[in-house]
Measured scan of single mutants.
Amino acid sequence: TEEVEKIVRELQKRGVSQEEIQRILKRNGIDPRDVEHVVRRLR
């Protein structure tokens, strides 16, 4: 989703690792598959 993408991009800008990003998003109830998808697209 748009929202997830924004969050991921923001965290990446701050130098947060992929694993940490995924952990944060999972904690916020976001589907890990969505996270994977977004992270892969932004690489």
Rank of each mutant, 00 (worst) to 15 (best):
T1D: 09
T1V: 12
T1Y: 13
T1H: 11
T1F: 13
T1E: 08
E2L: 11
E2C: 15
E2R: 11
E2N: 09
E2Y: 09
E2H: 10
E3V: 10
E3N: 11
E3K: 10
E3H: 11
E3Q: 11
E3P: 06
E3D: 09
E3S: 09
E3Y: 12
V4Q: 02
V4G: 01
V4L: 14
V4P: 01
V4E: 01
V4H: 02
V4K: 01
V4R: 01
V4S: 02
E5T: 06
E5Y: 12
K6Y: 07
K6D: 06
K6R: 12
K6C: 15
K6H: 07
I7L: 11
I7E: 03
I7C: 14
I7S: 03
I7A: 08
I7Y: 06
I7F: 09
I7W: 10
I7T: 05
V8S: 00
V8P: 00
V8H: 00
V8N: 00
V8K: 01
R9M: 07
R9K: 07
R9Q: 05
R9G: 03
R9A: 06
E10R: 06
E10G: 06
E10Q: 09
E10K: 07
E10I: 08
E10H: 07
L11R: 00
L11E: 00
L11Y: 03
L11P: 00
L11A: 04
L11W: 02
L11Q: 01
L11H: 01
L11G: 00
Q12F: 15
Q12H: 13
Q12L: 15
K13N: 10
K13D: 08
K13E: 10
K13M: 11
K13F: 05
R14A: 11
R14L: 12
R14Y: 06
R14H: 09
R14Q: 10
R14F: 08
R14G: 06
R14N: 10
R14W: 07
G15T: 01
G15Y: 02
G15L: 03
G15E: 02
G15M: 04
G15R: 04
G15A: 03
G15C: 14
V16Y: 12
V16W: 10
V16T: 06
V16S: 04
V16R: 05
S17A: 06
S17E: 04
S17Q: 05
S17H: 06
S17K: 04
Q18D: 14
Q18G: 08
Q18Y: 15
Q18N: 13
Q18E: 13
Q18V: 15
Q18H: 12
Q18P: 12
Q18S: 12
E19Q: 10
E19D: 10
E19I: 08
E19S: 10
E19Y: 06
E20A: 06
E20V: 07
E20Q: 07
I21G: 00
I21N: 00
I21T: 01
I21E: 00
I21F: 09
I21R: 00
I21A: 04
I21H: 00
Q22F: 14
Q22S: 12
Q22H: 10
Q22D: 08
Q22E: 13
Q22N: 09
Q22W: 11
Q22R: 13
Q22V: 15
Q22I: 15
R23L: 11
R23N: 13
R23C: 14
R23Q: 11
I24A: 05
I24F: 05
I24M: 07
I24E: 09
I24C: 13
I24H: 07
L25Q: 02
L25R: 02
L25I: 05
L25H: 01
L25S: 03
L25G: 02
K26Y: 10
K26D: 11
K26I: 15
K26E: 14
R27G: 13
R27F: 09
R27L: 12
R27A: 13
R27S: 12
R27I: 11
R27E: 14
N28W: 13
N28L: 14
N28E: 12
G29K: 03
G29I: 02
G29M: 03
G29S: 03
G29N: 05
G29D: 03
G29E: 03
G29C: 11
G29V: 02
I30E: 02
I30V: 12
I30K: 01
I30W: 13
I30Y: 14
I30N: 02
D31S: 08
D31T: 04
D31Q: 03
D31P: 05
D31R: 04
P32Q: 04
P32R: 03
P32D: 07
P32F: 06
P32Y: 05
P32K: 03
P32S: 06
P32E: 09
P32H: 03
R33C: 15
R33K: 12
R33H: 10
R33T: 07
R33Q: 09
R33F: 05
D34K: 09
D34G: 04
D34S: 07
D34M: 14
D34E: 12
D34A: 09
V35L: 07
V35I: 14
V35P: 01
V35E: 01
V35H: 02
V35R: 00
V35F: 07
E36R: 04
E36W: 04
E36H: 03
E36Q: 06
E36L: 05
H37V: 12
H37T: 14
H37F: 08
H37N: 13
H37D: 14
H37E: 15
V38F: 02
V38Y: 01
V38Q: 02
V38A: 07
V38P: 01
V38W: 03
V38S: 01
V38E: 01
V39I: 15
V39Y: 02
V39A: 04
V39C: 15
V39K: 08
V39N: 08
V39W: 01
R40V: 09
R40T: 09
R40C: 15
R40Y: 00
R40A: 08
R40W: 00
R40S: 10
R40F: 00
R41M: 08
R41D: 14
R41Q: 07
R41Y: 03
R41P: 00
L42T: 13
L42K: 12
L42M: 05
L42Y: 01
L42V: 14
R43K: 11
R43N: 14
R43V: 14
R43S: 14
R43D: 15
R43C: 15
